[in-house]
Design a protein around this nucleic acid. Structure first.
Lengths: 66, 66
DNA sequence: TCTTTTTGTAAAGCTTACTTTACTTTTGGT
DNA sequence: ACCAAAAGTAAAGTAAGCTTTACAAAAAGA
């Protein structure tokens, strides 16, 4: 699964730590999701979408391998 | 987190087993998510949205306690 | 009512999400 | 070059997703 978290953060100009804060997870969790080390829960995906005011599908996209 | 899986299934007239098949998980996984026993991964949420041709947010909604 | 399909659960096991702590590397500003 | 902030990563531990097997309850159809 691909994601556009880095881009969305850049547009909002917030750090991984700030995003983590707003969502209520650790900074490492954001970093790990952003770099594709693991797949977040649907709750986290919905919270991110809310922070960025985008649809979940705009932030996370399925790949063939999923 | 709330979900409308049961309703979406009813509209498409498919069983939990058929949905599980289309998404590639076990029937119990669908049942457990549908009855709120656990929160699915974002990959599963995206696949469900694709099956139902709806946005993730239309199928899964955050609650206060999330 | 009898039979089949669907749904609800449960337990055990494996895998992966997420945490905290901690350290290194990269980036940006002066 | 120096300093501070941000990002990357790792290890160990806990929590939770998901699987398989299995069985009971409920719903649906004849």
């Amino acid at each position: 699964m691909k994601n556009r978290i880095k881009v969305e953060r850049a547009e909002k100009n917030i750090s991984q730590a700030e995003l983590a804060d707003q969502i209520g997870v650790s900074r490492q969790t954001i970093n790990s999701i952003e770099t594709g080390r693991y797949v977040p829960s649907t709750i986290l995906a919905l919270k991110m979408a809310r922070v960025f005011d985008k649809r979940v599908e705009e932030i996370f996209q399925l790949e063939e391998t999923d």
